Computed example of a mutant assay.
Amino acid sequence: MQDLLPLYTSAHGSVSRRDFWVAGAVLLVAGIVLGFIPIVGSIASILLLYPWTCLAMRRLRDMGRAPAIALLPIGLCTVSALLAIVTAASISNPALLGTAMVPGGIAVLVGTLSMILALGFLLWIGLAPGEHEKAISPPLHTRR
């Protein structure tokens, strides 16, 4: 298993499925734990996008895909997190409580869509074999 710190800080290189899931589990647990702290959770979710992006780009490179594909779900998650921060700031001010409904509704819609897309993306890059795995495993149709 590779050292985990470079997986979070550099988008260069590749990562195997096993290392991807270990590093992803660490990021997921950190996001869940920090998510329980109201404002800090939203800020942490934005800050955790960088290590997720590095990890996803490495995994896509291992799959033989363009690493830039990782920017689509990351971009949607960024928009969702920013809308959550705007909503939280609007709710904290009683004079702006009525206007919090608009960004709140948009945040729910964008958040739901980004979670569905991010989950599908995560499963795709986490379950698809890498280039070196394709070369050593025989195709299923040749088994008897």
Results as ranks from 00 to 15, higher is better:
L117K: 00
V26N: 06
A11K: 06
V15H: 04
I85G: 04
I37G: 13
I116M: 12
S14Y: 07
E133W: 00
P129S: 14
H132D: 12
L28Y: 10
P38K: 14
H141Y: 15
L71M: 08
F121M: 06
M101F: 15
A44Y: 04
A84G: 09
H12N: 12
L113G: 15
A68V: 07
V102Y: 10
A23G: 01
M1V: 08
I91Y: 08
L49S: 03
V15L: 01
L109G: 10
L109P: 01
A68P: 01
G13N: 03
W124L: 02
T112H: 12
L55Q: 09
S16K: 02
G24A: 14
P129K: 06
S92D: 05
I32L: 11
I43L: 14
G104E: 05
S80H: 13
P73T: 02
P38M: 10
E131K: 08
L83S: 11
L4S: 02
I116L: 14
A128E: 15
A68Q: 12
A68E: 11
S10C: 00
G105H: 09
P138Q: 00
F20A: 04
A100I: 03
L83N: 06
M1G: 14
R143L: 15
I39A: 13
R59C: 02
L4K: 05
A89E: 10
G24Q: 11
P6C: 02
S137G: 03
R58L: 06
D62H: 07
T78S: 14
S45D: 11
L7M: 04
M1A: 14
P139V: 08
G130W: 09
H12D: 15
V86K: 04
D19A: 15
S137D: 12
A107C: 14
D62A: 15
P94K: 12
A68D: 08
V110C: 10
R61G: 08
A30T: 14
P6E: 02
E133P: 00
V15Y: 00
W52E: 06
P6A: 01
M1D: 11
L76A: 10
A135T: 03
L96H: 02
I39Q: 11
I74T: 13
M57C: 04
N93Q: 11
I46S: 09
I46T: 05
A30C: 03
L122S: 13
L122R: 10
L49Y: 08
A118V: 05
I91K: 05
L4I: 12
A66P: 05
D19L: 00
P139K: 03
I74F: 04
W21V: 03
V86S: 11
M63N: 00
A95F: 04
I69E: 11
R65C: 06
P129Q: 07
G130K: 02
R61Q: 11
L34D: 11
S16V: 03
L4A: 06
G41L: 10
